[in-house]
Structures are given as structure tokens and as C-alpha cells.
């Protein structure tokens, strides 16, 4: 990939081939990326509305040592082992982030940064240790840092798609309760909703999404897929239900576009591409979105000032 060209005829040919679905693996990558983008956007929305937007960043970084430990213990990269390892260490990270500010002087923002960087260092140390070992099947472990959708196996993608669909289904089912809790926690408790259980469930869904996202988006940039779609979607509409739909569409589209790019340039990491696509959506929404976009607000301001309306 030394000489990457934007308009090379081969890129165009590959895009056409991609959309004819001649390659079954590419089709799986496409489905997986879109589902991941959608589920991450929706789960991330609640974190952003709880004013805890960067929690996904810490959870993703925390997953890294778990994946490495699981490999050291079981010497395999089968998707369920990876899922198990990543989930256990993400949950540990979640616990640490929650425990530090409650029991020590350390403030929440520092707790997040500490958890993120400590677990990431642990993961990298374990990864470098594994690379010095003489074991089989260790290649590709480093792909979870920046994600490489093209290198994923249909088996991984099936697990990913199933989890993502489950997450989307559960959120659809319990949307109203989470909206209530996010808006007015004390009130939710006062009418007898078991707030703690919903909290834990949402955290679990978040960890699940982060973990299945590792191989496509990667540890380092997972945060963006969780927080950018909803932030962009808030410029489009005042109502949460619609915002979640817009966020899911943005997340899904960015998954789709980055799957396409990943097919054209299989050696480049997928995560950064997906984040750049998302950044594009964010900038577009920031300026042109019909509800709170910059342009609309300027027009509104101008019309308020004009004497016609007085």
C-alpha cells in the first residue's frame, strides 16, 4: 500500500466488486460493521446524556489486558474466549473507575484517565510479552488496537452480529425506562424503578458493544463510535427517540462506508477511517442540521432581529 491513490481505477473496480457482493467475507464485514455502528451509537447515546461521554474510551482501553490474558491462558483467539477475556477486564476497569472517586480524593476525570492508561499499559505490556513467546496463533492480536475489519473471519462476525442485534433489541424494549432514569434518577427511584439494575444492565451492554467493536474499530478509537453519532444527532431533532434513530443511521452509514474503504485498502486500519467518516458526519450536522445546526441558528437570529417580525 505504499502508493495509495485516491482515484485509482483499481479502487473503483474494487468498490464495484464490493457492492456486487461477490466476496462472501466482504458481505459479512459489511453486515458486522453496520450493526456495530448502529448498536454502539445507540448505547453510547445514554452515556453521553448521562454526561459520562468518555466512559466508553476507558472501557475499550480496559478490554485490552483481558484479551491478552485470555490468550496467554488459553492460547487461542476464538471469538468467545476473546469476548470473555475482554469483558472481565472491562468490568474490572468499570469497577475501578467507580470506586476511585467514591473512596479516595481522586476526582472522576482523573479516575477515568488513570484507569484508561493503566489498563492500556498492562495490555501493551502483555502484548509485547506474548510477541516474545514461542506460541502459535499469536499473529493478528495487535489488530485489535486500531481494528482491521478485512482480517476478520465470518465466525467472528457472526458472534458480533448476534451480540449487536441483541443489544439493539434490548434497548428498543427498555428505551422508556432508560430515558426516565437518565432524565430524572431520583424520581425514577421514587416510583419504585430498580435503578441500580438498569444501570448495571446498560453498563453491561456498553461493555459488550465495546468488546465486539474491538476488531473493527479498535481499542484506541472506540470512544468516537460511541459518542460522535449521538452528538451529531442532537443537532437534528429535539426528541430522544428521533435522536437515537438518527444516531443509529449515522453509526450504520459510517460502518458501511468504512467497510467499503477497508475492502479497497485492506492493509490500512479500519478504526481511523470510521472515525474520520464520523467526523465528517459531525461537521456536516454541526453546520447544516435542521434543528440546531449553525446555519439554521444564524437564520433564526437574523429573522428575530429583522423589524418585520416585531
Amino acid at each position: 500500500m505504499a502508493d495509495f491513490e485516491w482515484v485509482s481505477p483499481s479502487a473503483w473496480m474494487l468498490t464495484k466488486a464490493f457492492w456486487r457482493f461477490e466476496d462472501a467475507n466482504a458481505l459479512w464485514v459489511l453486515i458486522g460493521s453496520v450493526l456495530l455502528g448502529m448498536s454502539a451509537s445507540v448505547v453510547g447515546s445514554f452515556a453521553v446524556l448521562k454526561r459520562n461521554a468518555l466512559i466508553g474510551d476507558a472501557l475499550a482501553h480496559s478490554a485490552l489486558p483481558g484479551v491478552m490474558m485470555a490468550f496467554i491462558l488459553f492460547e487461542t483467539q476464538s471469538p468467545l474466549v476473546v469476548l470473555f477475556g475482554a469483558m472481565s477486564s472491562s468490568l474490572l476497569g468499570l469497577f475501578l473507575m467507580d470506586w476511585l472517586p467514591k473512596n479516595t480524593k481522586i476526582k472522576p476525570d482523573a479516575a477515568l484517565a488513570i484507569t484508561l492508561s493503566f489498563f492500556f499499559a498492562l495490555g501493551l505490556m502483555a502484548l509485547s510479552y506474548i510477541q516474545g513467546l514461542n506460541v502459535e496463533g499469536k499473529s493478528g492480536l495487535d489488530k485489535i488496537l486500531f481494528g482491521q475489519a478485512a482480517a476478520m473471519l465470518p465466525e467472528d462476525l457472526m458472534v458480533l452480529s448476534a451480540v449487536a442485534m441483541g443489544v439493539l433489541l434490548l434497548i428498543t424494549l427498555l428505551f422508556q425506562k432508560w430515558r426516565l432514569i437518565t432524565f430524572n434518577r431520583q424520581y425514577a427511584r421514587s416510583i419504585g424503578i430498580w435503578v441500580k439494575a438498569y444501570d448495571v444492565l446498560l453498563a453491561l451492554l456498553m461493555v459488550l458493544v465495546v468488546v465486539i467493536g474491538l476488531q473493527i474499530v479498535g481499542v484506541v478509537l472506540m470512544a468516537a463510535v460511541l459518542l460522535v453519532p449521538v452528538s451529531a444527532a442532537r443537532f437534528w431533532h429535539p426528541q430522544l427517540a428521533v435522536i437515537l434513530w438518527v444516531a443509529a443511521i449515522i453509526g450504520g452509514l459510517s460502518g458501511l462506508i468504512s467497510a467499503n474503504i477497508s475492502y479497497i485498502a485492506p492493509a490500512t486500519p479500519t478504526g481511523p477511517w470510521m472515525v474520520l467518516v464520523l467526523a465528517g458526519f459531525f461537521i456536516f450536522s454541526f453546520i447544516f442540521a435542521p434543528y440546531q445546526g449553525w446555519l439554521v441558528r444564524r437564520i433564526r437570529q437574523a429573522s428575530q432581529r429583522s423589524p418585520l417580525h416585531e
Binding site: L49, R51, R179, T182, F183, N184, Q186, R234, H237, P238, Q239, L240, I243
Partner: peptide, 10 residues
């Protein structure tokens, strides 16, 4: 004033 009045809800 204990609520988030910027919350996207009607």
C-alpha cells in the same frame, strides 16, 4: 433544579 432541562424530551 435537580433535573437536566436540556434533556431531549417533550
Amino acid at each position: 433544579d435537580e433535573s437536566d432541562w436540556d434533556f431531549p424530551i417533550q
